[in-house]
């Protein structure tokens, strides 16, 4: 990585945008197809996993996060961290309110 990448100011080649686009559309198709298969507990897990991959693609390439200043990446990281904190700490209460029946 060279110096100027800190300025967060890059032109993304449209070719990359199209590839990302194709991957995203494929992701939508894949989610729908997967949801019609009986995968038991893995149905929602797979759906969220695909969504996470899609979201990462959008963030990294469409939103130029890959070429953004470190602090911008840091803010995304802290967002994910806080979101997980919110989920985990609320779940802590709900799961332990009724062990087993959750």
């Amino acid at each position: 990585m060279s110096e100027p990448q800190e300025s967060g100011h890059r032109i993304i080649n449209p070719r990359v945008s199209f590839l990302v686009y194709l991957a995203l559309v494929a992701g939508v198709g894949l989610t729908i197809v997967a949801s019609y298969q009986n995968l038991g507990i893995f149905n929602p897990i797979l759906a969220v996993a695909i969504a996470l991959v899609q979201a990462s693609l959008v963030a990294l390439f469409s939103m130029h996060l890959k070429y953004s200043p470190r602090v911008s990446k840091l803010s995304v990281g802290s967002g994910i961290f806080m979101l997980l904190t919110l989920f985990a700490m609320v779940l802590l209460d709900y799961m332990s309110r009724a062990w087993g029946s959750w």
């Binding site: 989610t31 019609y36 759906a47 969220v48 969504a51 963030a59």
Partner: peptide, 23 residues
Amino acid sequence: LYWHFVDIIWIFLFPLLYLINRH
């Protein structure tokens, strides 16, 4: 950036709201 973010929200909303136990 804002528009892509709105897109990301939908990427999560779609499977979570539309695709619960479809099989």
